[in-house]
Amino acid sequence: MASRRRMLLKVIILGDSGVGKTSLMNQYVNRKFSNQYKATIGADFLTKEVQFEDRLFTLQIWDTAGQERFQSLGVAFYRGADCCVLVYDVNVMKSFENLNNWREEFLHQASPSDPENFPFVVLGNKIDVDSGNSRVVSEKKAKAWCASKGNIPYFETSAKEGFNVEAAFQCIAKNAIKNEPEEEIYLPDTIDVGAGGRQQRSSGCEC
């Protein structure tokens, strides 16, 4: 139990509606892409096992479940994240400009103990669209912003083509693992009512 939490890494994906957060998750975990856009319904989080330096970790990737549409993600969503992925659409300027808001919102809500060094990864998605002709945010501009925020790793991806998705998530996993869990004291014996419960102690109550 004591090591459970350390093996389980929580990754949250933030960004404006429609930038491809769910598609990126699905491409990475299920190698699937659907062209039909629907605002996210039905996804809670996806998990994937990753190996790093001979150890197995479970990456738990949390989707916004549509609550980002009106900036209505509650503080509980942000809690305990080991890495925060910021996604924008290279074809939509507003989604890039909002990265700063999402980053600040994360730091405010999750209040990590060392905000300067908390691992973010930025993904510029949908580079496949119109063979790049409708692109409005240049790689240079995106990289400059990432550099100004403490050298956030930056990837250009296409969830549709599966381009660079694996590489991006490997970086996300690596950064999540490196993020030292801060509050280990309480973690060993938290109770997950859904896992391994219902087991009656033989020495239980006699009343």
Partner: peptide, 25 residues
């Protein structure tokens, strides 16, 4: 953990996953 305020948020997230639309403020 983190207090009783987590309970409503957990149910709201369930609702969101099932398609409920959320607008705070």
């Amino acid at each position: 953990i983190y207090g009783q305020g987590e309970l409503p948020q957990a149910f709201c997230r369930c609702a969101a996953v099932k398609g409920a639309l959320y607008v705070l403020r």
